[in-house]
Amino acid sequence: MARALLRITRCYSSPLSSLTFPPPPPLLHRGAAPPLRFLSISSSSPSPPPSSSAATWDGPGVKGGGDGEDFLGMSDDELMGQCEMGTFKASGPGGQHRNKRESAVRLRHRPTGIIAQAVEDRSQHKNRASALSRLRTLIALRVRKPINLEDYTPPVELLQILPLKSTIRGKDVGPQIGPNNPKFAPGMQALLDLLFAVEGSVSEAAKILGLSTGAVSRLILSDDALRTAANEVRAAKGLKPLK
């Protein structure tokens, strides 16, 4: 069967609703479904699938995808609309022959080529939600938006992840948001954008953020993914990695 033959299937709406079914979607006649493409992924070791959620980047190096589009500002449904969803290609006959509880989901974000997948949860629906949140983190890490330092003011998402002692952080910004909060991703993206604009210099970034160089380093080191991405930015400018 030609692999190119893609099933055209209607997207489940609202990926995050777990136990309540979303309101009936608009009625569609067969063949008139919106083009969410389902791809099968041949995994090299089809059984068992990768034991943990993982994410990969299939593009070469860091690229600014989507012409500065604000992917992280999109709703889950909008972001999902930009993705191709694949599931792992099962080995063997499948169907009634097989008892396999794990259901992996892989999302490929078309504008950036970023791939995020999840396999840990009990249902496709939950896996899709985890893959989507992983995708947000990866977009934050990988997609650089150019900023103009002349008239730069850090966005509120960035202020929210700064320690309270920052001199540019107003009182109304609220408590500091840590890496486990879903709102950390947009802040992280803004921080990396700034670091990119100052060519990897932590002390330059620190000045702009009203913090000591040490405080910015500690913030970067507080999250492994953020540290790795920051060090990639620095390596591209010939700077030593932060440790």
Partner: peptide, 20 residues
């Protein structure tokens, strides 16, 4: 035990005009 493949059946029914 219902199989994951079978989930797609529901989608196909949902695509039939006036199914509801």
């Amino acid at each position: 035990i219902p199989r994951p493949e079978t989930e797609a059946v529901v989608e196909m029914v949902g695509n039939v005009e006036g199914f509801e």
